Simulated assay, not measured.
Amino acid sequence: MSIREVEDYFVALIKARFARRVRAVESLPADWDDDTFRRILRQAPGVFVVFGGGDADPSFDEQGRPVIEGQWGFTAVTTHAGGELARRHGDQREIGAYEIVEVLTTLLHDHDVPGHGQMKLRSIKNLFTDGVEKQGASIYGVEFSLPMFVTPENGEQPDLGTFRTFHDDIDPAPKDGRVLASDITNLEQ
């Protein structure tokens, strides 16, 4: 499975486990902005899947594919009119952040992901900030590692076609939006 397919796999697995106890289970980028934060608050209680990249393993698998130690984060977000304690503990009407974290941990630790390996729990973190508290939310992160084979979705190496032209804008961070130099090289075939 590709990274995208693994992400989709986790979303489906978590949706099936929580059924209707959460409003949202979806994937998000690793870097959140204010719009992302507002959106997840509107969808609380929810679980959000984040692929955080991974460190390369110096070995390759038996088929010569590169291997990474993939980092997967699962973020539990709750809001509750009953206050901070109810956000963490939940009640008869709404699930709490602690229960989401506990279910995720038992569901995913040692879970075999088809075509890759076993998930291993790395940490559980309270992602409390003053801003989160002011918005009336509790946010916890559960992090796992997963050995992953880096493969395209269809399992085949992509055909990039003939490499004929290289273009580069040279200026790593232009303050005025203008690059200092530009280069185009045509390669003989």
Rank of each mutant, 00 (worst) to 15 (best):
residue 114 P to N: 06
residue 64 G to F: 09
residue 33 D to P: 08
residue 39 R to L: 14
residue 93 R to N: 07
residue 126 N to L: 08
residue 178 R to A: 11
residue 23 R to W: 01
residue 114 P to W: 07
residue 53 G to T: 14
residue 113 V to M: 08
residue 6 V to H: 01
residue 163 F to S: 10
residue 150 V to C: 09
residue 122 R to S: 11
residue 114 P to I: 07
residue 35 D to V: 06
residue 20 R to N: 15
residue 81 A to M: 09
residue 131 G to I: 05
residue 71 Q to R: 13
residue 149 F to V: 12
residue 152 P to A: 11
residue 75 T to C: 05
residue 36 T to N: 15
residue 129 T to C: 03
residue 52 G to C: 10
residue 179 V to L: 05
residue 161 G to A: 02
residue 165 T to A: 12
residue 100 I to D: 00
residue 132 V to H: 05
residue 165 T to L: 14
residue 20 R to P: 00
residue 10 F to V: 00
residue 75 T to P: 00
residue 43 Q to R: 15
residue 54 G to L: 08
residue 75 T to S: 02
residue 34 D to I: 14
residue 65 R to Y: 13
residue 158 P to Q: 06
residue 79 T to I: 15
residue 94 E to I: 11
residue 77 V to W: 12
residue 188 E to M: 07
residue 159 D to Q: 07
residue 34 D to L: 14
residue 36 T to H: 15
residue 81 A to Y: 08
residue 26 E to Q: 06
residue 1 M to H: 12
residue 159 D to K: 04
residue 162 T to I: 04
residue 16 A to R: 11
residue 60 F to L: 13
residue 175 K to M: 08
residue 103 V to C: 00
residue 165 T to W: 03
residue 73 G to D: 03
residue 44 A to W: 04
residue 65 R to S: 12
residue 29 P to L: 10
residue 9 Y to N: 02
residue 102 E to T: 10
residue 126 N to H: 07
residue 19 A to L: 08
residue 123 S to V: 00
residue 179 V to A: 06
residue 64 G to S: 09
residue 164 R to S: 15
residue 78 T to L: 08
residue 16 A to T: 11
residue 166 F to Y: 10
residue 154 N to F: 01
residue 159 D to W: 01
residue 92 Q to K: 10
residue 33 D to C: 09
residue 189 Q to S: 08
residue 49 V to S: 04
residue 119 M to E: 03
residue 189 Q to M: 05
residue 52 G to Y: 04
residue 168 D to C: 13
residue 40 I to F: 04
residue 118 Q to R: 12
residue 41 L to A: 12
residue 145 S to R: 07
residue 24 A to W: 00
residue 113 V to F: 06
residue 133 E to L: 12
residue 162 T to A: 12
residue 179 V to S: 09
residue 98 Y to S: 01
residue 128 F to G: 12
residue 61 D to H: 10
residue 117 G to H: 02
residue 5 E to R: 08
residue 64 G to W: 08
residue 179 V to M: 04
residue 51 F to R: 04
residue 41 L to I: 14
residue 180 L to I: 03
residue 68 I to F: 11
residue 113 V to Q: 06
residue 115 G to S: 11
residue 23 R to M: 08
residue 186 N to T: 09
residue 151 T to F: 01
residue 32 W to P: 08
residue 10 F to L: 02
residue 21 R to G: 00
residue 162 T to W: 01
residue 91 D to H: 06
residue 146 L to A: 04
residue 81 A to V: 13
residue 49 V to Y: 03
residue 56 A to E: 11
residue 176 D to R: 04
residue 166 F to P: 00
residue 88 R to H: 05
residue 114 P to Y: 06
residue 180 L to Y: 03
residue 188 E to G: 11
residue 142 V to T: 09
residue 4 R to E: 14
residue 118 Q to E: 06
residue 40 I to S: 02
residue 172 P to T: 07
residue 58 P to C: 10
residue 20 R to M: 07
residue 184 I to S: 09
residue 22 V to M: 06
residue 81 A to H: 11
residue 180 L to S: 12
residue 117 G to C: 05
residue 54 G to M: 09
residue 64 G to C: 10
residue 128 F to W: 15
residue 65 R to H: 14
residue 118 Q to V: 02
residue 74 F to N: 02
residue 111 H to L: 13
